[in-house]
Design a protein around this nucleic acid. Structure first.
Length: 1064
RNA sequence: GGACGAUUAGCUCAGUUGGUUAGAGCGCCACGUUGACAUCGUGGAGGUCGUUGGUUCGAGUCCAAUAUCGUCCACCA
């Protein structure tokens, strides 16, 4: 029975049907299989902080495309899914919500309770993210979902830290960090961004003082850790203001930092100040005396007053200056408490918020007469990406990983080609970042994350020194704590957790800090495969309660089989944060790179060229688009954008709920608006609500939803494919009641008109030789097969180098412009002819079969739907001999080895036929000939072309609504009123008496002749240039000569016509 | 300030190693729905390839300068 095939593809139904189908069959699963090569992609793990956006949709589409493609090619294709705990972001989100809803801070609930709350949050979002990925059709091995805080990953983190600690790569140090006062943690340089902020630019002065006692060394650094603020006021009594009353002026945007100044700095060659170098000034607000130092790197003669105050504890440049001038300056003075209030070093301002104290200090300076001026200024201020609050430079104790060797190894891997970037240019950003070899600050003052596996205890005065001890599970070292006291530090490896309790009983306490999120995601490629456990395969689900040994394996087979991976697919902004660090840790832990290729894809922007992001309010939910355009439509469109050069710009619109007109998004739509923002439709003039960054529209109300019209490209393509397949299937089936089997018999029936060996389809056909079978086919069959072979090659080699856009174009052009527009049209007459039908069906189904397989990685759902339907009608198909089709397209073999089908000469011949038909259509269009009217045409051409024409003669009707009356070299020129065209090597004549205005035709032909004359003039000029003829390669010259000959021939034909028409 | 990318039709983008008359999709114009598809078909209009120099027989393509936009890095008293 004929299964009803609807006229429109229904994406939602197909998506709901085939994803569970694949999953239940286990098609997504990847396990070590020595008979197959592995192909491995590790997902760039999404953060559990929120929902997926368009960038993820692009990223996921490409990875799934590659995974499905390689799976069809016979690889054991693993796409590893998982999520990232995203330390700062997630904790900030939960803390913020907790504060908003319950008024509680993390200190109110405590470490364990907060972590518990975050786990719950994580469960919700992880589920949401994973289900979103599935909606994209992601063929991940869903049994292997990992989470950076699960047991498998945690163990890898502990082991890596332990190993690095043992190797002396991890150290503790004071460092000026970006301090997030809201989250009370250090934030990496990579996690802060600058924003222009309104601020002030104050100018003050400090009085220059001179010594009045013998004490010459004033603020020399003391050996012990005394607080500098205690010492300075005491010494200040030994100085008095210069008799000249000289003052030194400077400007600042942060006056409160005056309290922590340890020097003022001038340029060593600045004539205004050279005489003051080595003298001192007194800070009026606290009376401290500080030196005037010279530093060419910090001070710039041309800027401001040329003099800078130096606050090493609160400014990176000042800190750098301090490291250069330590012996002159004294220790940096930290003014801040972790929450952004001033500490005891601020004297009377202790306890005040830094911003409050700022004004107070300004007032005090003014009162004391040291204020000069203030101006308003836009100040670039660093903000924490996570909390969106301004960060403060803050001197604190942090843990670091030494980068020199590690970074060098990662540099070498990219230089010697073990890691290749696509496009190649991104290697540079990777290399230049690693080249700095800046030590990696890995500690974060958070609770959500991997707690640093160091236990320490202060050494008493009696204890001589720390024990240095290294074993497979313990590594002990001496060190200093934050206050500078001597401590015994012990790092404990993951496999000896008993030690943890033992040491705690001995009075050791674990570090409160957790590790930078990137520390765990850097291990992702090998941690997910079970490293460092070499004895067991990694457990199959992260939620599985059984810990690390759920399977009876005695060897981890997964890790060596799937490591190193094949390709990492990501966007350029985390090349440094993540890609470089994965290479680095992969080399360190595994001795090999984590992936061979890095595919960097474009970023998604809105219609104004701005990166899409939730905070900008221009983000778009991919699920909404999937619902509107279908998953395959979205995937196909998005893949068509993914090229090497440009970012993807997606102009967004709002669809009027009243009339479905699309209202283009304008920048003002993205601004924060009070109340319930409404948008007015330019067509029906009605208003409706729409979503803005600060407003979610009321459900039930008419809402103007976000649409991206560019996605119609993919949706339309899917529908076209659907209908082409529908046509094919309708024509594969028999019309009588015996149904399917009858259809097959027809296909299998011999067709005497064609090669019997091809058409006699039974098992004995094994004797068939392809070239013979091909030769016997009509020209359109051989053409489409040749084109298909070419396209198969193109797509395969384009995917090899990650040129998704070009592959998509190639496929679309083939399906739409060649298969649908030409081939299907051309075989329609044969499908109506019972004698010719079987062979046509054979080729048709083979082409459809191969095309679907080529498309599957791009559009998985529609191709599976069609594959399954086709299976019912034609379970065996293919050329030259039918074979049983695969049970599901997801595991069908990727087309290859079609070289025998290629025939470039034939493609060129066919092109001539196409040109001829287009020319006829052109004439029809020009004279507006009724589509109902069949015209006749005679063609003067070579006998070879005439033979080709003869073959497609019967299809002229449907292709051009024209009857070919005669073709050949000796075709008579028309003597009566007629329209003609010249293609150079052939001319067509269409008698159209009474239908056309002969004067108009004459004018048209004259115009055409002029045009060709223009071309000829250009070509002749070129050939007349001796330098061209002498210097250009001979084949180019010959080519141009041939062109000229053709043009002249064409002109002769046209002139002949013109003469004829003029004479009439 | 440094690096990288972009600038081609009204819009969004292709354009392989320099080589006849620069392409596509959308939009626009004209015509067209009895059997695959109006999410469609046929035909058409529309571009001095950001600007200025240079190399070359020949430049959208290579080189230099410049403008504008974007991204990353560094810096900003």
């Amino acid at each position: 029975m004929t299964t009803e095939i609807p006229k429109q593809y229904d994406p939602a139904a197909a998506e709901a049907k085939w994803f569970p189908f694949w999953e239940q069959r286990g098609d997504f699963n990847a396990d070590p299989d020595p008979t197959k090569p592995p192909h491995v992609i590790m997902i760039p793990l999404p953060n559990v902080t929120g929902a997926l956006h368009m960038g993820h949709a692009l990223n996921g589409t490409l990875q799934d495309l590659l995974t499905r493609w390689r799976r069809m090619q016979g690889y054991e294709a693993l796409w590893m899914p998982g999520t990232d705990h995203a330390g700062i972001g997630t904790q900030a989100m939960v803390e913020k919500r907790m504060f908003e809803e319950e008024g509680l801070t993390r200190h109110d609930v405590g470490r364990e309770a907060l972590i518990e709350r975050i786990w719950k949050w994580k469960d919700v979002y992880e589920t949401r993210i994973l289900s979103q990925l599935k909606r994209l059709g992601a063929s991940c091995d869903w049994r292997r979902v990992r989470f950076t805080l699960d047991e498998v990953c945690s163990r890898a983190v502990r082991q890596t830290f332990f190993k690095m600690f043992q190797d002396g790569l991890i150290f503790r140090g004071k460092r000026l960090v970006n301090w997030d006062c809201f989250l009370q943690t250090a934030v990496a340089d990579d996690e802060v961004s600058e924003e222009e902020t309104d601020g002030h630019f104050w100018t003050f002065n400090y009085p220059v003082v001179e010594e009045t006692s013998d004490e010459s060394r004033v603020t020399s650094a003391r050996e012990d850790k005394g607080t500098p603020s205690e010492t300075s006021p005491a010494l200040s009594t030994q100085y008095s203001v210069l008799s000249t009353g000289e003052r030194i002026s400077f400007s600042t945007t942060r006056p409160e930092t005056m309290l922590g100044d340890t020097a003022v700095c001038v340029h060593p060659t600045d004539e205004r100040y050279m005489h003051l170098i080595g003298k001192h000034v007194r800070i009026p607000v606290n009376g401290r005396v500080i030196p005037i130092v010279a530093d060419a790197l910090l001070a710039d003669k041309t800027l401001g007053t040329g003099c800078v105050k130096v606050t090493p504890a609160h400014d990176p440049n000042d800190y750098a200056c301090w490291t250069r001038n330590k012996e002159k300056m004294g220790e940096p003075i930290n003014l801040l408490n972790p929450d952004g209030t001033l500490n005891e070093n601020a004297g009377p301002w202790q306890g005040q918020d830094r911003l409050v104290a700022r004004d107070a200090v300004v007032a005090e300076m003014e009162r004391l007469g040291h204020f000069e001026k203030v101006e308003d200024r836009k100040i670039p201020l660093k903000h924490s990406d996570r909390s969106k609050t301004p960060v403060e430079p803050y001197l604190s104790e942090q843990w670091f990983v030494k980068m020199d060797t590690l970074a060098q190894n990662a540099i070498d891997a990219a230089n010697d080609g073990r890691v290749t970037f696509y496009p190649e240019r991104y290697r540079q950003s990777y290399l230049s970042w690693l080249g700095e070899k800046r030590d990696w600050c890995i500690s974060r003052q958070l609770w959500w994350g991997h707690r640093i596996p160091i236990w320490s205890k202060r050494l008493t005065d009696e204890e001589e020194g720390a024990t240095e001890d290294e074993s497979h599970s313990l590594c002990a070292r001496g060190g200093l704590d934050e206050s500078g006291a001597r401590v015994q530090m012990v790092c404990i490896a993951p496999n000896d957790r008993d030690y943890e309790t033992q040491f705690e009983q001995l009075g050791f306490t674990q570090e409160p800090d957790v590790l930078d999120t990137w520390f765990s995601s850097a291990l992702w490629p090998h941690a997910t495969l079970g490293w460092p456990d070499t004895e067991h395969n990694p457990p199959l689900t992260s939620s599985s309660p059984s810990t690390l040994n759920p399977q009876p394996s005695t060897k981890n087979e997964v890790l060596p089989y799937f490591y190193p991976g094949s390709v990492l697919v990501t966007s350029r902004d985390i090349i440094t944060l993540w890609v470089a660090r994965m290479v680095l840790t992969g080399l360190y832990n595994m001795g090999d790179v984590p992936f061979k290729h890095v595919c960097i894809h474009p970023k998604i922007q809105d219609g104004f060229g701005q990166t899409m992001s939730k905070s900008k309010g221009n983000g778009v939910d991919p699920i909404e688009l999937i619902e509107k355009y279908g998953c395959d439509g979205m995937r196909f469109t998005i893949a068509s954008f993914a090229g090497e050069t440009q970012d993807v710009r997606l102009p967004v619109g709002y669809e009027c709920p009243h009339c479905q007109a699309v209202i283009p998004q304008e920048p003002h739509h993205l601004k924060f608006k009070p109340g319930k923002p409404k948008i007015k439709c330019s067509k029906c003039k009605k208003e409706s609500q729409y979503a803005t960054p600060n407003y979610t529209p009321d459900e039930g109300e008419p809402i103007a939803r976000v649409v991206i019209e560019r996605f119609e490209y993919g949706r339309n393509f899917c529908n076209k494919l659907w209908n082409a397949a529908r046509f094919a299937m309708l024509n594969l089936e028999s019309r009588d009641e015996s149904g399917e089997s009858r259809a097959r018999e027809e296909v299998l029936a011999a067709s005497p008109a064609l090669d019997s060996r091809l058409s006699t389809l039974d098992s004995s056909l094994a004797l068939d030789s392809r070239p013979l079978a091909l030769d016997s086919l009509p020209i359109e069959d051989r053409w489409i097969l040749s084109r298909l072979a070419t396209v198969t090659d193109e797509v395969t080699s384009l995917l090899d180098v990650y040129k998704f856009d070009a592959a998509t174009r190639s496929l679309r052009d083939f399906v739409w412009n060649e298969f649908c527009d030409w081939y299907l049209e051309m075989i329609k007459p044969r499908l109506r002819d019972e004698a010719l039908k079987p062979a046509a069906q054979r080729v048709l189904v083979a082409v459809l079969d191969t095309t679907l397989r080529l498309l599957h990685p791009f559009t998985p759902f529609i191709t599976e739907e069609l594959w399954q339907r086709l299976k019912e009608i034609a379970p065996s198909r293919g050329l030259p001999r039918p074979t049983q089709a695969a049970d599901a397209i997801i595991i069908a073999p990727w087309p290859s080895g079609l070289e025998a089908w290629r025939d470039s000469t034939l493609e060129a011949r066919f092109q001539r036929l196409q040109d001829l038909i287009v020319a006829v259509r052109n004439v029809r269009g020009t004279y507006n000939i009724s589509p109902a009217l069949t015209v006749t045409i005679s063609v003067r051409c070579s006998s070879e072309s005439a033979a080709d024409l003869e073959q497609v003669k019967s299809q002229f009707e449907s292709l051009a609504k024209a009857t070919l009356t005669a073709a050949g070299p000796n075709i008579a020129r028309p003597t009566k009123a007629s329209v003609s065209f010249s293609l150079g090597d052939s001319d067509g004549y269409l008698p159209l008496e009474g239908l056309v205005d002969l004067q108009a035709e004459l004018a048209r032909q004259k115009k055409e002749a002029d045009k060709v004359r223009g071309f000829i003039a250009g070509t002749e000029k070129k050939l007349g240039t001796s330098s061209f003829v002498d210097r250009a390669p001979p084949e180019v010259v010959a080519e141009v000569r041939q062109t000229l000959a053709n043009q002249q021939k064409q002109l002769a034909s046209i002139e002949e016509i013109v003469k004829l028409l003029s004479a009439d």
